[in-house]
Design a protein around this nucleic acid. Sequence first.
DNA 1: AGCAGTTCGTACGGTACCGCACTTAACGGG
DNA 2: CCCGTTAAGTGCGGTACCGTACGAACTGCT
Lengths: 255, 255
Amino acid sequence: MPNNRRADVRGDLKARSAASHVAAADAPSNRLLAALSKSDFALIAPQLEVVNVRVNDVLARRGEAFTHIYFPSTAVISLVNRMADGGAVEVGTIGNEGFAGLAAYLEAKASESETFCQIEGLAQRMPVGALIDAAAARPALRQLLNRYTHAYIAQLAQGVACNILHNVEQRCARWILTTHDRVFQAPAILLKQEFLAYMLGVRRASVTIAAGALQDRGAIRYRRGVIRVVDRAVLESSSCECYGVIRDHYDDVMR
Amino acid sequence: MPNNRRADVRGDLKARSAASHVAAADAPSNRLLAALSKSDFALIAPQLEVVNVRVNDVLARRGEAFTHIYFPSTAVISLVNRMADGGAVEVGTIGNEGFAGLAAYLEAKASESETFCQIEGLAQRMPVGALIDAAAARPALRQLLNRYTHAYIAQLAQGVACNILHNVEQRCARWILTTHDRVFQAPAILLKQEFLAYMLGVRRASVTIAAGALQDRGAIRYRRGVIRVVDRAVLESSSCECYGVIRDHYDDVMR
DNA sequence: AGCAGTTCGTACGGTACCGCACTTAACGGG
DNA sequence: CCCGTTAAGTGCGGTACCGTACGAACTGCT
């Protein structure tokens, strides 16, 4: 949980060498950046810097403004809403299909959600103002960001309904599938049941039971914070339809 | 429920007389339109027409494109996500603080949500393309729409967490408060328990119990589809914090 | 190898819902 | 004024969670 984050992490959120910029410009592994036209990408490429984002790094606290927009390539970012009584639930996740800092791009005063790193990895980032300016200058870029915004809205809307209508096991399967898509190259997802329970807004014991059922069915293996997806087909049939609905919305953004 | 809508309603969604346009231009009662600068409003005013939206009028079916953007003044619009198995939940509501057709404005292929009229009233509408064009031409308008988009996102995010963390009575109180804000001039909210249950994604019997508790506490009176707010303070204390959080986000949009 | 710390499995009673079905109460048309 | 219809209340058993707690299993350190 973000509460447990080590004190030193923010210091690591600094840019790498200029060589990274070149590599990034050559082959952006963020799908949204990759969908840009050559000229649009050329406009923002000079502003991009590659950073390594580590588990529990906080990109923006609740009510705090973003300084940068983050386009993850291998990192996975979570947005969590926390209530006055301490209860908290993950409301959205962001991987290489999008970017973190939507509230800042939209020039909102502040976001209610806390944004932090769920799974360590690389991201490209740029100052908020630079993206706003680029969007003002480039209609095609603006259109892509708008379509992404809608996909994120669709993710949230689906989540509202899903949390009412679907049980813990289905939501658990959905979460694992979504995350698996975003760390496809990795052999496993590193995540304690405690943390997953926090994301889903349920007890850890409920995750133990749900994950146990998924394991019995041969969908996954889950041992001491290491989730391995064994049979995606089984996992998908254990999940609610929300997984596919949301994935399709994001695929639509990139055509 | 939209299923029960009368066959003739779409025919009623036609513009009123030109005189209505003038009245609208003089005093737009939609808060978003009212927040526009004179010159920005002057740009889009010629495109606006006043329509009366009636209960269960469908503004856009799931997967169907909007033809118009609707800025409600006294009407209240609901967005509902329906699942493959027929289950459905309201994911968002729109009143005079915003507009229906966000998906279309963002140029999404289609929205998963079904958009229909919850409470009869007036709205101003304009063709989707006209708003997109106006936003492209006017940075201040674009900024206002962006900030509204974020407030809508905040509403959805809060809903995701709320549906996990808060009970039926709290959510019931929240719903009534939100709707009450939007029909403030009206003496009562017309809504059967059956319908409210559908919106909240619970059984009608659960609404009977929750509403009964709110009644016992003196917050409301609820009799045969007529909700009267008796004591807002009590109602607010019966609701979860989500009511205030969302309201504040929308107030921020308009300054 | 032994020990401490972490992660997971399990158990127990409690509660807030659910689905279903039936009764009661209000309203409105003839 | 009666009566059909519609809306709200109620009752029952079932279930999916909850909060709490404790013990088991694995891991890393010395």
